[in-house]
Amino acid sequence: MYNFTFHRPTTVRQAAGLLARNPDGKLLAGGHSLLPVMKQRLAQPSAIVDLSLVEGITGVELKGRSVSIGAMTRHADVANSPVLKEVMPGLAAVPGSIGDPQVRNRGTIGGSIANNDPNADYPAACLGLGATIITNKRRIAADDFFQGMFTTALEEGEIIVRISFPVAKKAAYEKFKHPASGFALVGVFVSKRGPDIRVAVTGAGANGVFRVPTFEEALKKRFAAKSIEGLTIPASGMNADIHASPEYRAHLVGVLAKRALNKANA
């Protein structure tokens, strides 16, 4: 990798100040997206601002009818959070499926969401639950946050502090793992919170995570796999690579959505 200066702030304010002084700098959370890219010399940040000592941005808390997760909470800690497993096991399953145990030991929710890899798992959960991404500057609805692959609503110098997930009575994630990378070849998150029904898909779309309005509409009658029987999504706009054709990805969206619905209703 290219060389850089290394900084370890202890507050969000300090971190923001460091970013302001280093316009080509990058935040380092768990490092499991950024460091591999830097090792391949595909990114050349002038400064690395390591968030691991920043106080107050870790942990999983139940706040009223929402679960609030600190941006620097590691995947393993979210997956194993007793409170989350109790109120919304469907969300806990998402970090539990990311990468491998060592990646889950280091990777963080904030890092994953900020990166918005088109095959990452967390974006599906955020969009599939209508989460709110809370930064040092504002609150951003998930529907506005994810703006295409590796692109988000984050502005320069903006730091994700927490993510707030409304607790849904029914929620589940179903993932077909990419056989090499462990990312989602296709992943589908479904949820039902009162009248709000969401189906969010990662891995499949050429433009990153997306919702499936036709499925959501059909599920309004009854939140069950049967309701989307026979519904398909078009292959156009799906990713194409050696591991999966657009047709196959489109097909998997339907299969995984049904499996997720069965899981959510179980």
Binding site: P179, A180, S181, D241, I242, H243
Partner: peptide, 11 residues
């Protein structure tokens, strides 16, 4: 080479 790393070549 499309499968140039263990991210793409399935081990």
């Amino acid at each position: 080479l499309v499968t140039g790393s263990m991210m793409d070549y399935s081990m």
